[in-house]
Amino acid sequence: MKKILIFLLLSFALYPQGLSKFPSGLSKWLPFYAGSSANVDTLAFYASLIDTNSNPPFRMSINASSVTMSLKGTGLIRVVWGDGSYSDSLLTSTAKSVSHTYSSSAARNVVIYNSAKITYFASTDGANYNFDWAQTNRMRLTYFACTGSNTLSGTLTLPSSMTFFLCLGSNTLSGTLTLPSSMTTFQCGGSNTLTGTLTLPSSMTYFVCSGSNTLTGTLTLPASMTYFNCQGSNTLNGYTTQTFNNNMNHLYLITTSGAGFSAAEVDRLIIDLDNSAWAGGSRTLRLTGSAIAPPTEASAAAITSLETKLVTVITN
């Protein structure tokens, strides 16, 4: 009895939050945690580490001397850095910087446990990320941004909740490009081979797709769009008329095969774009490629007008 009393006194001294809700099944390996909401969350996190079948970790290779990821989410995650160390972070709706410095620059396998808690992933540190995009379904992403010399591969399937996707580098993403209805920004650089009919959601403001893509469809931009850049072996063709956003900044279209755009369509497009005031730096209008006709005198005045709006115009 005396031993029990000493144990209880020591326990309350060390863990004043209380001893309730402690899951007995984890007592063999878990630290002796108390029952505050934060620690219950911690216990749930450790439990998730055990249940890696229903909550598989996110695995990637990173080649860098240091890594900094900006993350948002709804709970605890653990990043195992591949050099024997790890970091635990409680993610919330406020971006949290999760970083690590290695003793040297080298390729290492990095694992994020409890990745289903991540909704926002951003890295602009230039570390070379390498992973199969399919693994991102282990997160609950609405926002993904990763710059640097990345080598993402696999089929690019965007979650329906995603609003922002930006990935630069030597990516080799493939598949049919379907943009979720709430997406505002899509930028994918590298040697991608995306296919499909290009349908831009009404809320979209920014679209850039480079590589050997074979996107098809007619050219129609949402009223909100100010930046459009489509390159590759796309066969976008045909244009009637539309009103462009008054803050138009960039329209860059290279089309080298397919029916493309006639001179009349190119003239109409340039004239419609001149009806926008344009805004921002580096204002550029490019309509080139063997499947796009040169403009005629019909759009000469519009081109001159665009120049007065500080727009650089490039045509065949």
Binding site: T312, I314, N316
Partner: peptide, 8 residues
């Protein structure tokens, strides 16, 4: 090979 007009 392309035609360029620019105020810059």
């Amino acid at each position: 090979g392309y035609k360029t007009t620019t105020p810059f």
